[in-house]
Design a protein around this nucleic acid. Structure first.
Lengths: 341, 341
DNA sequence: CTGAAAGCGCTTACAG
DNA sequence: CTGAAAGCGCTTACAG
């Protein structure tokens, strides 16, 4: 073990300033019951000794840690953070920046979706938890047992016990699919992750169906390409998509899938948008970068992160524990991957 | 303020198990001086009461927090985390995963590069700090004052006081440029971020020069396109690059720049690799995704994160404070953006 | 406006 | 093998 330098404590400051430790604490916490003259003495001593408070000690008595937990989904195979999907990176940027502005720090982690995560939150006296994505019901049950403020992001967990930030995924998918229809397409495939009850993926699938039904277009099973939400599945799916010669357009329920399938299609000699049109969902950063620029259903990912933090900050500072549910807007972002036919 | 549930403490467990709190602590910390029978009683009580230790309290006495700080560079304009550059996301995934395996949690943040960050590290009793990127000298001076284990990643801070993980950027750039030369190119431009003394960007610039000099190719100023390391500068630079009609190949000192310039060039009707060849550096995740697949100088970003954590873990567990400096290998990853001429 | 003191929940010599 | 007790560095009633 390395040698630990002796820490300058509140006692040292008190001695230096010639006051009690209580006074130091009052000044530092701006309780404002101290004479200006005393305050100056204290601040001088703090500066002189380069005093840095110990948050562990503070947290031990105040029960507040200025720590926010951020749970990011993991990839299925190797349980790493899903940060290779830029959607999560952008979200995280928003969270970090906003947290920093509010003097919170964030602990980022994946979780094995068991009670362990909650234990960690409790161990650390976390002031709040931002949970991104869907987890098994048991996870939410555990979360509920704590009374740490929790905001669920992109969760269709039916329980309205938690704060939440989300978009209307179903409506967004409807918009995207309808956009394709308006461009003259009738045989529209959907490229999607595993459709599980109550998740974002299912909602987007339903929105796709809504649009087709509205126009009396039959929703047929051989239009549905269901796999994993990652770039590789996008590439692989191209082979299957090619088999259905009727398809002229694709609604990809995530940009990362859209990007993958465009590459896969190209490998097969099928051009986007000349042969097949593709619309994505999310508007991640690289969708604009990508060539061709991806037409997509845009949501403000960064803002999502920001709002999640603000909800927690508000629920900590304010007395009322009113549940906050925010639904952010979506819109079509037209670029180069959809052709009118 | 929300009401805080009363916490189950070590005292409660002690009472339940009919032993002293010291014994509880010994069992939990596996100090192994407790009878098996007693241990069982303790574990039963822990389980029954669902006891969760308070890390703040533990940290207060043990001076160890099981917390690792991770400093990620920020964008210049808006001071957000540079997570839109996938390079940093991938690195972060590596760090998080490895930290989790070792029972550490990570606090991710940007920093305003002043003493503040160090203060935070001290406040939190962080067990280690992973610093990604280059900062002004003063920052390192501050870091040195603490005696928290610190590992510098991709820093050419000359001070060998810190642990470090890096690659040989100069050699990598040399390899990449030489690859272009071997493919028959002579007029090779370089697309780069701001060349500052002592940074990764400068090293890569030097490596580019090394390759040209070796072949007696003149390093001329009108081959250097210097801007910001982001996608947009890549796009914008295309206009300038076009002005130099002789250029047949480009060494981009970061994939994100390569991707941008390919798009920019295409907008100008210049095809890659048919009209101009491009090689990047880093091999970020989307370089493979990108169409055309980007030929690049590959480094193992994920492993970089992993190694950084391992160094810290080792320096904490082991007594000796031997400095560890790891240099990871680089290699050419051939894909579709370089043509033989 | 300021201070003495209790207490937050742990770990760790020390004693037995 | 186990316990009583001190102490980590703070905050916060309470008293004056």
């Amino acid at each position: 073990m390395r040698h630990v330098k002796k820490r300058v404590t509140i006692k040292d400051v008190a001695k230096e300033a010639g006051v009690s430790i209580a006074t130091i604490s009052y000044v530092l916490n701006k309780k404002g019951r101290v004479r200006e003259e005393t305050e100056e003495k204290v601040m001088a001593a703090v500066k002189k000794l380069n005093y840095i408070p110990d948050i562990s000690a503070r947290s031990l008595v105040s029960k507040s840690s200025k720590l926010l937990g951020v749970v990011i989904p993991q990839t299925e195979e190797d349980r790493q953070l899903m940060l290779n999907n830029p959607f999560y990176s952008e979200f995280l940027s928003g969270v970090e920046y906003c947290a920093r502005k509010h003097n919170f720090q964030i602990i980022v982690s994946g979780t094995d979706i068991d009670k362990k995560y909650l234990d960690m939150a409790l161990e650390r006296n976390m002031d709040g938890i931002i949970v991104m994505g869907m987890y098994p019901d048991a996870f939410y049950d555990d979360l509920k047992k704590s009374n740490i403020p929790i905001v669920l992001v992109d969760s269709y967990c039916n329980d309205h016990y938690f704060h939440s930030v989300q978009i209307n995924d179903r409506y967004g998918a409807y918009l995207g699919t309808k956009y394709l229809i308006e461009k003259g397409h009738e045989h529209i495939g959907i490229l999607t992750g595993k459709i599980k009850a109550g998740g974002v993926v299912e909602e987007r699938y339903l929105g796709y169906q809504d649009a087709l039904k509205e126009l009396d277009i039959k929703v047929s099973k051989d239009l549905v390409f269901e796999g994993v939400v990652d770039f590789n599945y996008g590439i692989e799916s191209a082979k299957d998509i090619r088999k259905n010669k009727k398809i002229t357009a694709l609604f990809a329920s995530a940009d990362i899938l859209a990007l993958g399938v465009i590459k896969g299609l190209k490998g097969l000699g099928i051009k986007v948008p000349d042969d097949i049109s593709v619309i994505g969902f999310d508007d991640i950063y690289i969708s604009e970068i990508f060539d061709p620029g991806l037409t997509t259903v845009k949501q403000d990912i960064y803002k999502k992160g920001q709002k999640a933090v603000e909800i927690i900050v508000k629920s900590i500072t304010q007395d009322n524990n009113a549940k906050q549910e925010i639904v952010l807007p979506v819109e079509i972002m037209e670029r180069e991957t959809v052709k009118r036919i």
